[in-house]
Lab assay of single mutants.
Amino acid sequence: KTVHVDGVEYRFNNPEEADKFVKRLVKEKNGNVEVRGDTYHVE
């Protein structure tokens, strides 16, 4: 899984860790998540 945040790319081998990371980011930023294939885009 890959997570894109503000143009920075984070790669996770463990999908659960990627999910936790995304949830935390969305809370912090009050942002939205767009999923494209295996990539999460957080804005």
Results as ranks from 00 to 15, higher is better:
E34K: 08
V5D: 01
T2Y: 07
Y40P: 06
E28H: 07
P15K: 12
N32M: 13
V42C: 00
D6L: 02
G31I: 13
R36Q: 08
R36K: 11
K1L: 14
V22M: 09
R36D: 11
F21A: 02
E9W: 10
V26G: 04
F21E: 03
H4T: 13
F12M: 00
D38T: 03
H41N: 09
N14R: 02
E17R: 00
Y10H: 03
K20D: 15
F21Q: 02
E9S: 07
G31S: 09
K23N: 11
G31H: 09
T39W: 08
V26L: 14
K1I: 15
T39P: 07
D19E: 13
T39R: 06
L25W: 06
L25D: 04
H41K: 08
T2F: 08
V42E: 08
K23F: 03
H41P: 09
L25T: 04
D6P: 00
V42D: 08
K20Y: 09
N32Y: 13
E9D: 06
V5R: 00
Y40T: 10
N14L: 04
D19M: 11
N14T: 14
Y40C: 08
K29L: 15
E9I: 13
G31L: 10
N14E: 03
K1S: 12
D19T: 04
V33F: 10
V33I: 08
F12V: 01
R11P: 02
V33P: 04
V33Y: 08
E17Q: 03
E43V: 14
T2M: 05
V3H: 01
T2E: 02
T2K: 04
H4N: 11
F21Y: 03
N32T: 14
Y40I: 15
R11K: 12
L25A: 05
F21K: 00
K27E: 13
H41C: 13
K23T: 08
E28M: 06
N14S: 14
K23P: 03
R36T: 09
L25R: 00
N13W: 05
K23M: 10
K27W: 08
D38M: 02
V35N: 07
N32K: 15
G31Y: 15
V33N: 06
T2V: 14
K1F: 15
N30G: 14
R24T: 13
E34G: 06
R36A: 07
H41W: 15
E28R: 03
T2N: 04
N13V: 07
G37C: 12
K20T: 12
V33W: 09
T39Q: 11
K20F: 09
A18W: 06
V26A: 10
G7Y: 01
K23E: 14
V26I: 13
P15Y: 09
T2S: 07
K29P: 05
E34N: 10
N30Y: 11
R24W: 15
T39F: 07
H4I: 15
H4D: 02
A18Q: 02
P15F: 09
E28W: 10
A18C: 11
E17A: 06
K27Q: 13
D19G: 02
E16M: 06
V8K: 11
A18E: 03
V26K: 07
V42S: 06
R36E: 09
Y40N: 05
E17T: 03
V8M: 06
K1H: 13
F21H: 02
E16W: 06
V5G: 01
V42F: 12
E43L: 14
E17F: 00
A18K: 03
R36L: 11
V26D: 10
K1V: 15
D19Y: 13
N13R: 06
D19N: 04
D6K: 03
K29G: 13
G7H: 02
D19K: 09
E9M: 09
N30H: 10
R11G: 03
E28S: 07
G37A: 05
R36W: 08
V42Y: 07
R24H: 12
E16N: 04
E9V: 13
E9L: 10
F12Y: 00
V5W: 11
E28F: 06
K23Q: 13
V22K: 04
Y10R: 00
V35W: 09
H41M: 11
E16F: 06
L25I: 12
P15R: 10
V26S: 05
E16I: 05
N32H: 13
E9H: 02
V35D: 05
T39D: 11
E28N: 07
E16G: 04
D38Y: 03
D19F: 10
N32R: 15
T39E: 12
N13L: 08
V22L: 12
H4R: 11
D38K: 02
Y10A: 00
N30T: 05
G31C: 15
